[in-house]
């Protein structure tokens, strides 16, 4: 149940090789340096989408991840730009802060199910945007700009990582950082889903009453899962702020929250690695359709509807071997 099969290990190694060696080589060969920014965005959006996927796993449709990404982005930006704290400390703090906020929000709203929960989460992004506009610490509509790049890390006087601004290629550094975090996120997600907590989540997704009758504290598990989900959102957001060196109230909008959800649908709710593929496809799909001009949105929407109609279990149900098969059986 917990061990990886050799086939999965090979797939995972190929994946690691591709993102850490293959992509940088391909980019330097073709000279398309702009792809670093695109792929970095995909990686950090995939981190936030992983959180949304997890709330799906307890049977809740979460269209509010943008709220927690925005919270994470602001917490990190304020800590780094205003308080002068290292980015590396601000990153986990941003995640934990987003998780704490989600506990407060989750306590009343996680009792709701189905479309009612979805509707409440839909307004969360707007609430956080408006809060950011109103609060003095977030600088209102001007946002927080010129956020310093991440500094170096030294342990016992030994420099492990040089400051990002001293590096020749900041884009590559951010790309590697985002990919490492993404891989860690999905490994944690994989492990969680295949541990007992995942089994409990599945029982709640299928029948909450029955789950509580066998002694599972469903309210507690829901909060834990929502907090972990929002932690991922906060981390993704903080990373975004650091890469773009700025955060505005509009950095994450309702549309982004919807996209996080779509990433999960598109990749497949039954597969841990679904949201990662979904994010990549959605992000590039949108860009590729750019040439269609004013028909971009139309074609894009029709394609999405077709995918959801004919591949209700997501793109991964087309199955490239067994790689990435996550939840379920």
């Amino acid at each position: 149940m917990n061990g990886l099969t050799s086939k999965q290990l090979i797939g995972f190694s190929i994946f690691l090789l591709a993102i850490f060696v293959g992509v940088p080589m391909a980019i330097s060969a073709t000279g398309r340096w702009d792809f670093y920014f695109t792929l970095t965005s995909v990686a950090l959006l995939a981190i936030a989408s992983a959180g949304v996927w997890l709330t799906f796993y307890i049977g809740r449709i979460n269209i509010g991840q943008g709220a927690f990404a925005l919270i994470g982005a602001y917490v990190s930006a304020i800590l780094v730009a205003k308080a002068g704290i290292s980015f590396w400390i601000s990153l986990p703090v941003a995640g934990i802060f987003a998780a704490l906020v989600s506990v407060l929000i989750g306590l009343p709203i996680l009792r709701l199910r189905g479309v009612y929960f979805a509707m409440i989460t839909l307004v969360l992004t707007q609430v956080v945007t408006l809060t950011a506009l109103a609060l003095p610490i977030t600088n209102g509509a001007k946002g927080i700009t010129s956020i310093p790049l991440p500094g170096g890390i030294s342990l016992f006087g030994l420099q492990i990582l040089p400051p990002f601004d001293s590096m020749a290629d900041t884009k590559l550094a951010f790309y590697i950082l985002a990919c490492i975090l993404m891989v860690l996120t999905y490994l944690a997600l994989w492990r969680l889903v295949h541990s007992r907590l995942g089994h409990i989540c599945r029982s709640m997704q299928q029948n909450e009453e029955l789950a509580s009758s066998i002694g599972i504290n469903i309210a507690y598990i829901r909060i834990i899962i929502f907090a972990i989900s929002s932690f991922f959102g906060g981390i993704g957001g903080a990373l975004f702020g650091s890469i773009s060196q700025s955060v505005y109230p509009s950095s994450f909008q309702v549309q982004d929250s919807v996209n996080f959800m779509l990433n999960c649908f598109l990749g497949g709710l039954g597969y841990v690695f679904g949201p990662m593929l979904g994010t990549l496809t959605l992000y590039f799909g949108w860009d590729l359709l750019f040439t269609l001009g004013k028909y971009q949105l139309l074609v894009y929407s029709v394609l999405l509807i077709l995918v959801i109609r004919f591949l209700p279990n997501g793109l991964l149900s087309l199955r490239l071997g067994n790689i990435g098969k996550g939840g379920g059986k």
Binding site: H199, I200, Q206, E209, I214, G328
Partner: peptide, 20 residues
């Protein structure tokens, strides 16, 4: 009222929550 997409054995395993 059952765990529809679990096997019989999985259902009985998850139900041992209080024995954990």
């Amino acid at each position: 009222t059952i765990f529809k997409s679990m096997t019989v054995r999985e259902s009985v395993i998850v139900a041992q929550h209080l024995r954990a």
